[in-house]
Amino acid sequence: MLSLETHNLSHRFSNGQDVLRDINLAVEQGAIYGFLGPNGAGKTTTLRLILGLLKRQEGAISIFGKAFDKHRIEILRRVGSLIESPSVYGHLSAKENLAVFQKAYHCPPAHIPHVLDLVGLGDTGRKKASQFSLGMKQRLSIALALLPAPELLILDEPTNGLDPNGIIEMRELLKRLNREHGTTILVSSHLLAEIDKLVTHLGIIHQGELIFQGTLEALKRKQQQTLHIVLETGDPGAAMRMLLDDQMEAIFSDGHIRLPAMTKTEIAAMNRKLVSAGIEVYALRPVKNDLESIFIDLVNT
């Protein structure tokens, strides 16, 4: 069952520039879906379209199996969100900020101290939000998103402005919400390491196109598939001939030979053979593709 689905979502700025092309997001219920992409890839535009903050031009959006346009209020009652920079009323305290939205969501007032404690702002008292640090404002914005006890949480770069401890706390909080309450979370980020530690599913967007979507396991399988060995020799031509004669999938590029992944014993055997044939081996190293290199590979394809 999908909590959120977009079908061929496309968007164009008023100057005619394409921002999104045929985005087909599929966020499963109970998933923590990481929406990954470099700056300017179209993450925020996608999320703003999903939440109705931008007028939809092409494609369809459905949340909880219902068309967003036709069931906007019913859907938003079950969704919490944080889009980009913090949105808080500077002249009000944290509690008052939450009270403003508690009325709008018509949720129990007891949610206010609960979410303030969850984000670690329980003791800010009457201090105005304008006197908060950026990290505190970001925490308050997350508290606003959590206020209606949402079934779907949409967070755009939620760790912006948080210190390392804050990032860890936020990650643990999101995991806990997902585990204990079954909250579906769609979280966008350009921080690969952060996404790697948090999500169960992943979508990668680049230049307005979704270039990967699937589980983190599927991406890691891809990682295993793309693991390779780099060989640098004094005579690449002779080395290539010898390797191809041995039925190896060797590719020569950028002055070095790229080979598929192999065991340590196989690497040693190949090295012996090259040296015995009088070919000088300068370097022989496995290249482990972490999420970052897969991401770079994907966006450069």
């Binding site: 903050l53 709008a104 914005s141």
Partner: peptide, 18 residues
Amino acid sequence: QLEYKNNTWKQLHTTPLS
């Protein structure tokens, strides 16, 4: 202008209010 100044239009427009 309270909403523009505090960057809160996006938060207000994602509440379940018409």
